[in-house]
């Protein structure tokens, strides 16, 4: 299914910075079980398949290498859903009774 991604495409790569056994001694157990991974984007140097080890040129011109993930990944963070519990906040401030009978 995987199609080749052409040279000069804007892509994201992944690389392992530290394997579990190379991690800092002071990290919590559950963190130390995982490798330290890095993702970065850049222009693909040569045509390749996702999963291939490739070289990219980052937006500021540095050459970095890693496993090719995908071409031009989208930004997927959004606004989520309205929080219905907070819809009445304005009313709750308006309804505050004045303490000590102060006129408001």
């Amino acid at each position: 299914m995987n199609r080749k991604i052409p040279a000069r495409a804007w892509v994201q790569i992944e690389s392992v910075v530290l394997r579990p056994e190379e991690r800092a001694p002071n990290v919590p157990e559950e963190t130390r079980e995982c490798p330290l991974l890095l993702w970065v984007k850049g222009f693909l140097k040569e045509e390749a398949l996702p999963g291939d080890t490739v070289e990219i040129e980052t937006i500021i011109g540095r050459a970095l290498s890693g496993k090719l993930l995908e071409e031009n990944p989208p930004y997927e963070h959004d606004f989520g859903r309205p929080i219905t519990e907070l819809l009445t906040v304005k009313e709750e401030f308006r309804r505050i009774p004045a303490k000590g009978g102060a006129s408001q």
């Binding site: 910075v17 991690r23 990290v27 995982c34 490798p35 330290l36 991974l37 970065v40 850049g42 959004d78």
Partner: peptide, 30 residues
């Protein structure tokens, strides 16, 4: 976290190279 993803996007919007890592203090090493 959506908040951090947004901050990454904003850095890229300004043309920065963004190195995104998994959790850990070894960020300092990178």
């Amino acid at each position: 976290q959506p908040e951090i993803l947004e901050k990454g996007r904003k850095c890229e919007a300004y043309g920065a190279e963004v190195l995104q890592l998994t959790v850990g203090p070894e960020l300092f090493y990178v």
